[in-house]
Every structure is written in C-alpha cells, then in structure tokens.
Simulated assay, not measured.
Amino acid sequence: MMNQSPLYLQIKQYISDKIESAQWPVGHRIPTELELTEQFKVSRMTVNKAVRDLVAEGKLQRKPRLGTFVCTSDDKAESPLLDIQNIAEEVKVRGKIYSSKVLQQIALRADDSVATKLGVMLNSPVFYSEIIHLEDDLPIQYELRWVNSVYAPGYLDQDFTQITPNEYLSDNCPLNAIEHTVEAIAACDHVRSALKMGLNEPCLLLNRRTWSDNRLVSSALLYHPGTRYKLSSKVILS
C-alpha cells in the first residue's frame, strides 16, 4: 500500500530503493517514463519530475536517444583546478555532446562590485556574458563573466554558441596568471533553476580571475551542480 506523500516522491523513492538495493546496478537502464506512467497510473509530468530530481542528484543520467541510466559518482564531469581548459573540449574528450545557451551578452558600466572584480574605475565600460554550458543536454556549468572591454574589444561580436569565452580570450589575450577561489554554497533559486538542480543539492562556485601580460582581463563566477561536477588538482613535488 502506497503512503500519503506526493506521488512524484513515491516514484522517486521507488527508483532510489531499486538503486540502493542494487536491483538496478550502475549502468542499468531504468524503465521509460511511459512505462512508469502506466505502472503507477499517474501523469507523465509526475514521473518526469521524479526522474529529473534523481538526475539532478546524480543518481541517474539521461543519454539522448538511449534512455535513462543508473550512474555513479565516477560519471561526474571534472575540471582541473590549477589550470584553465576549454569546457567544450573537456566535454568532447569525455565522449559527450557539448552545447551552450547564451542568456546575456551585453555592454554595461562597472558598478562598485564589477569595478572591484576587474580592477577598473567606477562606470568604466565592460562586457558581460551569462552562459549555460551543457553536457548531453544537461547543464554542468553556469557562467557569469565580466571582461575588460579595452583588452578584449571583440568580445560582444563572438557567437558563444560556436566558441566559448575561454576559447576567445585564450586566443586573443594569452593567459599568464590565474586566481581561483572555490566554495560550496547553497544555490539561490535562479542558479538552481539554470542548472536544473534538486532543492537540497550542493553547489560548487568557482571564482576565477585571469590576467594577460599582467593585465586583469576577466573575472568569472562559475557555478556547478555538486552531484554532477568535481574539480581536481595534481601537484608534482620535486
């Protein structure tokens, strides 16, 4: 007999129990949403919400045209912490499909916060972009970036669905220094929605500033869903 909790939570618990009991091991393709809809006699929307939550929590992984599979933490996307790499290339190297959604790409005047980020005078002209990076249609990074317009004058002319800001800046403002700060945060509703995260899912925030020829060129906030993304580093000690 089913309990009185919301139907989508009952379905979510059913799937979680199958995974945790190893009846559905890593790599197992779970029933389709249509099959679960018929099994539980509920709407497709109800099933979809249960599955989306489990994808956001890192327990399931959608594979376009193949289905939804049980996954492990080893399936997390990964970036090097002590280096800067093009996220599009990282995704492709993992054998996944990269895509992006450009939400904003505008010129603005630096307020106090932005002036501090970029080391420019208040009201200086700067460029701003807001982009969601996806792996197999699932968001893995939400990028907010401010760029010094003096050092990257062609920034707003770029099609960031075809190249990434990192790729453009690396080609036009060769990197000579980076600054990274990483923290675990409770994501606000806006970030959680952009990354399709669960309500209590942890979020990794990478605060990055980059210099070229000792000039501060870019400052970025990079948000990642903690259950689907990890940062790593390797230090060789002599």
Rank of each mutant, 00 (worst) to 15 (best):
L206W: 12
D111P: 04
V91M: 12
L54R: 03
N166M: 07
D137N: 13
E90Y: 02
M197K: 11
S218C: 14
W211N: 02
P202K: 00
L144C: 06
L205I: 06
K12L: 15
S99G: 06
S193W: 10
L204A: 08
A115D: 15
W211S: 04
I140N: 15
D137C: 10
L34A: 15
A177K: 15
L156K: 08
T72A: 15
R52I: 10
V42A: 00
S99W: 08
Q4F: 15
Q4H: 11
M197T: 11
Q85F: 01
E35V: 10
H190F: 08
S170V: 00
L221F: 07
C188H: 10
L221I: 01
V126K: 09
S149H: 02
A186E: 12
N3H: 12
A184L: 13
R209K: 13
P80H: 07
A177V: 07
N214G: 05
E143I: 08
L54K: 06
N148R: 01
P165A: 14
L82K: 06
T161P: 01
N207A: 08
D171N: 09
I132R: 08
R65N: 11
I131T: 05
L7A: 09
L199S: 11
Q39W: 08
D112T: 09
M45V: 09
N172C: 13
L54T: 00
T181W: 11
N172D: 12
R52V: 04
V102G: 13
N86L: 01
S100G: 03
I185A: 02
M1L: 11
T181C: 11
G95S: 04
G58W: 06
K59S: 03
V102T: 14
I19F: 06
L118M: 13
I87W: 10
Q4Y: 12
L118I: 13
Q23H: 11
Y128K: 03
V217P: 04
V42Y: 04
Y8Q: 14
G27Y: 14
V102D: 15
L231Q: 08
R209F: 10
W24R: 04
S16Q: 15
T46G: 03
T227P: 09
E38H: 07
S99Y: 09
R145G: 00
V26Q: 12
C188F: 00
V126I: 15
R29Q: 14
Q141R: 15
Q39V: 05
T32N: 14
S73H: 02
N3M: 12
W146S: 04
P202S: 01
A177E: 05
G154C: 06
K117W: 10
L195P: 00
I185Q: 03
D189Y: 07
M121A: 14
S73K: 08
G67K: 06
L222F: 11
L7Q: 13
P6Q: 03
Y168V: 02
N148D: 10
L81A: 10
R44I: 13
V150P: 00
L169R: 14
A50F: 08
H180T: 09
G67A: 08
I163D: 05
N172M: 13
I19P: 09
